[in-house]
Each structure stands twice: as structure tokens, then as C-alpha cells.
């Protein structure tokens, strides 16, 4: 693959300025995305996963602002480039599909009108060519009888079909990156399976990169090569899907994995994460997860942990990892696991 990553986000800070104060929705997020890869961003509501995506597209609500950081697409800086440049990026290079396909389509125009509009806006095709392209796109996303369907309105489409139309619209200009913001959350399981299969096959066919934003770890496991776990606006863990699922290192990720019901948990108790998600208006001094963490140490409450590279494919920001590595170095012959819980200070 290319040596330079397709998309590079560095130390991104996005805030919303509300009457109640500044809400730091994204707090120092850095990651990169390679060509043709699927990156998953998981987290609970309010963790900043959608805001990260909207920051990349610069489609934030009026109160939201990228405070600092850099977003580089193919080496080109996108932060503060101005609306005219962003217009050439949106749709052409990066496209986005949203959770609710009903509210993202205009109910008063036909599907065809909206597809043609998007195509003509981003390419120099004339109306006839754009119409052909629209038909071609509908065929690509397996909409039956596209000639008939193109004249219909969104209400005549089912949820799954609408999401196919959204995908068709997003891919019409062959973007390098497709951002999918909870694309299947509003859909039923069997329809979700259809859409995920479709996205996967299109990704292989067109070779684009996908940023998959979801709270469903099942969808992540099925789709993603790399995974970012977010909590309270920052990345707590990042790595390949296998590393995150089979070797989670951050206490939050571990808790998340433990709290999903599986075949083994049937009839027994789940191990939930205690407490409630954090209020972004009053962020704690230390690690944002510390108030809910069962293994929190003194240092966790005092200062947040820097991200640490654990191996080639895995980064985590947890003081437990620091402690473990220090223990390992300090007394190598000693066994690994002893006294993990009770010690207060590393």
C-alpha cells in the first residue's frame, strides 16, 4: 500500500460552545487511515465518535468548532482551508452516510432527482449523463428495477432500500473514503446483514477506505481491520481488530467486552461497567474513565495517561499498562499476575 496514509488526523480538538460552557467533545484524537482499509470507531453515546467524523467532513453544528489539530487528506491540510476547498473534498474525496436514511433524504424530491443533483454538483456531467450514472449506481447497490425506482419518492422505499440509495449517492463520485455513521443501527438484523455485505463487496470492488462508526461490537468484528475505542472524547485504545478483541488492554475496553452477552454468559451474570457515562461539562482531572474503573489507582485520578505503544499493532492509554510494563521490567523472574488489584501506587 501507499507509504503515506490517506487520512491523517493529529491531536484533533473539537468543542461545542454552549450556554452551559465549553463541551470538549473531541479531546486530542490522533489516528491515520490507509487506503482500502476499514477502520472502526466504537464508543458509547457521547464518546465523540460522530463528532470526530463530522470534524473530518467539517459539517459540525454552528456551535461546534475545531479548536486545534490537523486533518490531512493525501497530504493536504483540511483544517481552516475554507468552505470552497471543503466543497471539493466532500462527496468527491470523502463521503458520509448517516444513521437514519429517512431523515437524510429529502421527502419532497424523487430519489432520481436527489442522486442526479449530487452527481452534477460534484462532476461535470450533464443531466443525461448524470441520470445514467444514477441508474448505474442504483444497479451497483442492488436496487431492483432501477428505472422504475428512480422516479419514486423516499417514502416508497423501505429502510434498507433507503440506506442503499444513500450508499449509492455517497459512492457516485468514487470517493477515497466513505464515512459510515451508524449505518445499520436503524435497520433490522437481516437487513443489516444485507447492507454490511453490500458495503464489504463495494469496498473490495472500488478499493475505498471506510470509517465505520458504531456502538455495535458485532458489526466491528465483522467489518473492520483496525479499531479505535473512544471514551469521553479521547481514544483509549487502538489496534487491529484481533488485538482489540482478543487482547484488550485498556480497562474500558475490557469492561466493554465483558458486558456483551455471549454464548458463555447465558444463564449467568454479566459483568457490567458500574456507574454512568461521564458528563462532558465537568471532566475529571485524570483519566476520564477512572471514576467508573474498578482498578483505578491514585495516579488515574490525578492525571490522564499518555497513549503508549504496546506492540506494532496496538496502542492503549491506561495506567494499568504502564504499571504492568514497569512490574515486568522490575522483577522479570517474578510471576506476572500477582497483586494486580490491590496495589494502590505504581
Amino acid at each position: 500500500m501507499a507509504t503515506e496514509p490517506l487520512l491523517q488526523v493529529e491531536d484533533l480538538h473539537t468543542s461545542f460552545f454552549t450556554p452551559a460552557g465549553e463541551v470538549k467533545a473531541v479531546n486530542g484524537v490522533s489516528f491515520f487511515l490507509e487506503r482500502g482499509k476499514v477502520l472502526g470507531i466504537v464508543g458509547e453515546s457521547g464518546s465523540g465518535k460522530s463528532v470526530t467524523a463530522y470534524s473530518i467532513m467539517q459539517i459540525l453544528a454552528p456551535t461546534g468548532k475545531i479548536v486545534s489539530g490537523s486533518i490531512k487528506l493525501d497530504g493536504q491540510e483540511l483544517v481552516n482551508v475554507g468552505e470552497s476547498v471543503m466543497k471539493t473534498v466532500r462527496g468527491n474525496k470523502i463521503s458520509i452516510i448517516f444513521q437514519d436514511p429517512m431523515t437524510s433524504l429529502n421527502p419532497t424530491y424523487t430519489i432520481g432527482h436527489q442522486l442526479v443533483e449530487a452527481i452534477m454538483l460534484h462532476t461535470n456531467r450533464d443531466k443525461k449523463q448524470a441520470q445514467e450514472r444514477a441508474l448505474e449506481m442504483l444497479r451497483l447497490v442492488n436496487v431492483n428495477e432501477p428505472e422504475k425506482r428512480i422516479k419514486q419518492y423516499p417514502f416508497e422505499f423501505s429502510g434498507g432500500m433507503r440506506q442503499r440509495v444513500m450508499i449509492a449517492m455517497a459512492l457516485a463520485c468514487e470517493p477515497d473514503i466513505l464515512i459510515a455513521d451508524e449505518p445499520t443501527t436503524a435497520l433490522d438484523v437481516t437487513i443489516q446483514a444485507q447492507i454490511l455485505e453490500l458495503m464489504k463487496s463495494l469496498q473490495k470492488e472500488l478499493g475505498m477506505a471506510i470509517i465505520m462508526i458504531t456502538h455495535d461490537l458485532g458489526v466491528v468484528a465483522q467489518m473492520c481491520d483496525e479499531v479505535i475505542v473512544m471514551y469521553a472524547g479521547s481514544i483509549c485504545e487502538q489496534g487491529t481488530a484481533d488485538e482489540i478483541f482478543y487482547n484488550p488492554k485498556h480497562e474500558y475496553t475490557k469492561g466493554l467486552m465483558r458486558s456483551i452477552p455471549t454464548a458463555e454468559t447465558a444463564g449467568s451474570k454479566l459483568q457490567p461497567i458500574s456507574g454512568t457515562p461521564i458528563d462532558l461539562l465537568c471532566m475529571p482531572e485524570g483519566c476520564p474513565f477512572a471514576p467508573r474503573c474498578s482498578n483505578a489507582m491514585k495516579i488515574c485520578l490525578k492525571s490522564p495517561c499518555e497513549r503508549m505503544r504496546l506492540n506494532k499493532d496496538h496502542m492503549s492509554a491506561c495506567w494499568m499498562n504502564v504499571k504492568e510494563s514497569m512490574e515486568n521490567e522490575a522483577d522479570k523472574p517474578k510471576k506476572k499476575k500477582g497483586g494486580e488489584k490491590n496495589e494502590q501506587n505504581p
Binding site: E197, G218, V220, T262
Partner: peptide
């Protein structure tokens, strides 16, 4: 069609897509 929260299982499973 249930997405399995386990990458290896998810890769190996055969989905019957309706």
C-alpha cells in the same frame, strides 16, 4: 445474521443473507 462480537467467528461464519 447476528453480528458476532468476535472477529474470528465473524470471518468463519456463513451468513444466510435473505
Amino acid at each position: 445474521a447476528v453480528p458476532q462480537p468476535d472477529p474470528k467467528v465473524a470471518r468463519a461464519s456463513h451468513r444466510i443473507v435473505l
